[in-house]
């Protein structure tokens, strides 16, 4: 199965930021400039998250998405503070391909069904912030890992699938921004509990974290990274080489670009 490598871009107002365990956010650059750079380097998708959106109960990324979507021709997912069909409509109309919902879905799971029914399952991503519990398992959190829902992550993923989500995006709150590697037990549990594609996020700081996770979780569709790419701990060209060496099937942008050049020449 061909896997996807995704850049996650956390945004506060007009700034690209990055925190640790979804806290302590720092500015790390421009959300548009980084997107163009990752696109040029062959990233497969982008995920924009409005980090402060839930506080204001609305997503503020429409302007950024509109500018990026006219320059970057890969799928774009937008999340953060989306709580109504009107908000989804606004984001899809400016070029988002999918929306990721978390807080609003935990309060009103019908929203998943409503979005999927109106805009299609392919546009409906259930985002889950997973925090490990002392007694084992994980709890679904909201508002960047601050608020509890009491929901078991694996059961919530299964419910999200039953309610019509087309994809599950799971972030480990414990590993996020630490660079200590991904939570394999979490990713394995979620991926094998559903029949949907799963995107895993949190903890990558070297290529081996990505290759290990893909190798250990056969059915995992995609890995999203933030800090690792923003700080050049992992570069996309290096990651493709490491994946190829490990026998993991990812898009080979260099040979595809060569095919494009050959086509122009012929």
């Amino acid at each position: 199965m061909r896997r996807r490598i995704i850049s996650r871009l956390d945004v506060k107002m007009q700034h690209l930021i990055k925190g640790m365990r979804l806290e302590g956010w720092r500015k790390v650059g421009d959300p548009e400039e980084k997107a163009l750079r990752y696109y040029d380097q062959g990233v497969d998708e982008l995920i924009y998250m409005d980090v402060v959106a839930s506080l204001y109960e609305r997503n503020n990324l429409a302007d950024i998405v509109e500018r990026v979507a006219s320059q970057v021709f890969i799928p774009i997912t937008v999340g953060g503070g989306i709580s109504s069909l009107a908000a989804v409509k606004e984001l899809l109309a400016v070029g988002a391909d999918k929306v990721a919902i978390n807080t609003a879905a935990t309060k009103n799971p019908e929203l998943i069904t409503d979005i999927a029914g109106t805009y299609g399952a392919q546009a409906t991503v259930l985002s889950i912030e997973a925090k490990s519990l002392p007694g084992g398992g994980w709890e679904a959190m909201t508002d960047n890992g601050r608020n509890h829902t009491g929901l078991d992550v694996v059961e919530w993923a299964i419910e999200g699938e039953a309610r019509g989500a087309g994809e599950i995006f799971v972030t480990s709150v414990d590993q996020d921004g630490t660079g200590l590697g991904m939570d394999l037990a979490l990713i394995d549990a979620v991926t094998n509990a559903v029949k949907l594609p799963v995107i895993a996020c949190g903890g990558v700081s070297k290529t081996a974290h990505v290759t290990d996770t893909f190798q250990k979780v056969d059915r995992l569709s995609a890995i999203a990274m933030a800090r690792a790419l923003h700080y050049d701990q992992v570069t996309l060209p290096d990651l493709r080489v490491a994946c190829a060496d490990a026998g993991i099937d990812v898009r080979d942008i260099d040979s595809e670009r060569a095919a494009l050049v050959a086509e122009v020449a012929s």
Partner: peptide
Amino acid sequence: PSVTDDEKIIPVPHISWGR
């Protein structure tokens, strides 16, 4: 199809960069 010939689950929707 949601399974491979040897009965392994394949995620559906199919979301990927396919050759």
